[in-house]
């Protein structure tokens, strides 16, 4: 069944795509692919690990993590705030709904359960490795949190929705752990500022290494191992915040409809 509106939408989208293609063929995106990066990208690449410009570098080996948590740290802080807000909004939709802790569900077959038990060890190990090496190799807090969420979804689907609360990981505890992660992000961002108040020197928020007029810095090297200053702490905190934030939402998503319907119709 093709209506008039369908035809109208299809024609206007076709015009949209064709005009975009025409602009690109005129060189709207520049040469594809370009030979050089832009100046700002050159500066970011140059300052990622640069011992000759000590007051501007971040002493991490990975540019993406350095940009996320050092050069543009405030951006990421606000994005974490958006993430926090979206999860708070989801929890608000489920106010008053009780997650029962009874062991009613049975889950899938024993074979699937055994295989999933193996991944309960393997996937968090990979996630922790990705978070801890976020400043050295590709990875970081966001990636590790997403990887760890996979094991939570596996636990909910393969075992049952009563499995995680039955083993001590209830919604309230996940909320607490997520708040600890967010607190870690906040404390790391103002850590040097707090110390500078005690010492009476100058410091900035989201300061990682010493600047020209701010002498404090997070440790960048411990016995030959590159730490990347505050990036390690940021990655760990964000890992906890993201993993447990998503855990709350997936626990809510798996609540049975009868429980919720009772609350919704009561209002």
């Amino acid at each position: 069944m093709v209506t008039k509106i369908d035809v109208f939408v299809a024609i206007s989208i076709a015009i949209f795509v064709l005009s975009l293609a025409y602009i690109t063929s005129l060189g709207g995106l520049g040469p594809l692919p370009p030979v050089d990066v832009r100046d700002i990208a050159y500066q970011y690449l140059n300052l990622t690990y640069n011992p000759w410009r000590r007051f501007l570098t971040s002493f991490a080996l990975e540019s993406v993590t350095a940009i996320i948590w050092d050069f543009r740290g405030l951006d990421t802080l606000y994005e974490t705030a958006v993430f926090y807000g979206a999860i708070i909004a989801s929890i608000a939709l489920y106010r008053g709904v009780k997650i029962t802790h009874s062991r009613g569900g049975t889950g899938l077959s024993p074979i699937a359960k055994t295989v999933t038990r193996l991944s309960f060890v393997l996937i968090p190990t990979v996630a922790a490795s990705v978070a801890l090496h976020g400043h050295l190799t590709p990875g970081g807090g966001f990636q590790a949190g997403s990887i760890a969420t996979v094991v939570i979804v596996l636990a909910i689907i393969v075992f049952s929705r009563y499995f995680l609360p039955g083993h001590g990981l209830s919604k309230e505890r996940a909320l607490l752990l997520r708040s600890i992660g967010l607190l870690g992000v906040g404390l790391t961002s103002i850590g040097l500022l707090l110390i500078s108040f005690l010492l009476g020197v100058n410091a900035y928020i989201f300061q990682n290494q010493a600047k020209l007029d701010a002498p404090l810095s997070y440790p960048s090297l411990v016995d030959d191992y590159t730490l990347g200053g505050s990036l390690l702490f940021f990655n760990l905190s964000e890992f906890i915040a993201v993993a447990f934030g998503f855990m709350i939402v997936f626990l809510l998503l798996s609540v049975s409809e009868e429980d919720v319907r009772e609350v919704v119709t009561r209002d």
């Binding site: 990066v37 832009r38 700002i40 990208a41 970011y44 690449l45 540019s63 993406v64 940009i67 996320i68 543009r72 951006d75 990421t76 994005e79 958006v82 993430f83 979206a86 999860i87 970081g140 966001f142 990636q143 949190g145 997403s146 993201v242 934030g245 998503f246 939402v249």
Partner: peptide, 17 residues
């Protein structure tokens, strides 16, 4: 260029939320 990668990285996680 690392800058678009950094922006997209956070955008994906926020997009999931």
């Amino acid at each position: 260029d690392p800058l678009p990668q950094a922006l997209v990285l956070t955008a994906i996680v926020i997009g999931l939320a």
